[in-house]
Simulated assay, not measured.
Amino acid sequence: MSLPPARMPRPLLDARWRQAVDALVGGDADAALIALDALARAGHAPAQCDLGRALCYGVGREADVAAGLQWLLRADAAGEPRAAFSLAVIGLAGIWIARDAGTAARRLRHAAQAGFPPALRGLALALRAEDAADAQRISDICLAHAAARGDPVSARLRARPAFRMDALSPLPLLPEPDLSRGLAPPPARRTLCTDPRVEVADQALTAAECDLAIALGTPFLRPSATVDPRTGAAVKVPLRTSHDAVFDPVVEDVTLVAMQARMAAFADKPLGCAEPLALLRYGPGQEYRPHRDYLPPSRVRPVPEGGAGQRDRTVIAYLATPEAGGETAFPDLALRVPARRGDLLRFDNLDAAGRPAPRSLHAGLPVARGEKWICTLWFREAAYRGA
């Protein structure tokens, strides 16, 4: 007769935990979650973390955010660095709990000091925006340690010009980053049109942030589809010839959340109103022909009925400047916005009365040379994430 988890020695608990995680990854969610629940109740902090994340994000069963957060908090209190990192991401987003950049920074530092690769990567990028004399050196060291610990995103970032490829130095005592700087709205915006409103924020993203979004999303790219207005189904049509990926909240990190919070501030919308962030890549000759972002009625649940409503606003982040072409054009407004790395573009899809605005017609013009990379957030009228 096997021992109950509460009486198992730690090596056996660890083995059972690894089996449960393998089952979860392999698709046997029911058995995995039952095992994780038993291990979590026995006080196994890694299992508490994985159970908490599964419950928060609805992995294998309907989401239970309140229960998931409690398990993550218990794992964090036990010193589990992955739980600290998850809570840092959640705390920075400010959707399930009130945003607290200071607490998120402390948790990020703890997870990074413990050697958790995504936390090392997040701390590295946060430090690049700081003016402290040692910030850039420590940033390079953190990214090098994340890459050495097997993080492929960090390895890709290390090869970018913003980071040095020095030999691996010992990990120092890490500082607590100022994450609030990454949440602030762009300091200035240019209004290109008022009906519908079209605005640009110049150089609102750093080069490192742009590279991070590309590196995180590239493995998930697929040929783009669009919505059939009659059926609401996603279909592949000549209208849209790019590749895209939608970021699952499970893979988001502090940098990506901070970017989205800044995009939301530029949109004058809460981040909770945004659909998941989308990454798009356009190669030579690829385009998105004239279209509007508001959805067909079949895909909209009105706000009075408890839904998130229509897409009322769009924000595009330009991550890479093509050598030629790739502008965002508004044919009815006689506007063309260059796809310049680091810039944000915002435009309204509804008029002041909340009706679809036909003049929001826009297109991603064909790329003539090079590649164009963008991230897009579509904002609903009311809460979408966590609703």
Results as ranks from 00 to 15, higher is better:
M1E: 09
S2I: 12
P4S: 10
A6P: 02
P11K: 11
P11I: 09
V25M: 11
V25L: 13
D30L: 13
A38M: 10
L39M: 09
H44L: 10
A45H: 02
A54K: 12
G60I: 10
V65S: 06
Q70H: 12
P81S: 04
R82N: 01
A84Q: 01
A88L: 04
I90D: 02
G91Q: 03
W96R: 15
A101P: 08
T103I: 04
A105V: 00
R107I: 02
R109C: 02
Q113S: 01
A114W: 02
F116N: 00
L125C: 09
D131A: 15
A135W: 00
R149L: 04
L157D: 03
L157G: 05
A159Q: 15
A167W: 02
L168S: 08
S169G: 09
R181L: 14
A184I: 06
P185N: 08
P187V: 07
A188N: 08
R190F: 03
V198Y: 01
V200D: 05
A213H: 09
I214H: 08
I214A: 13
A215W: 00
P223T: 07
S224K: 13
V235I: 15
V246Y: 05
F247Y: 10
V250L: 15
E252H: 06
Q260E: 13
F266L: 09
P270V: 05
A278I: 11
Y282G: 10
H291F: 01
D293T: 09
Q310C: 05
R311G: 04
R311H: 03
D312V: 04
A320V: 08
A329I: 11
R336K: 15
R340H: 07
R341E: 11
G354V: 10
R359I: 03
C375P: 02
E381I: 09
A382D: 13
Y384P: 02
A387D: 10
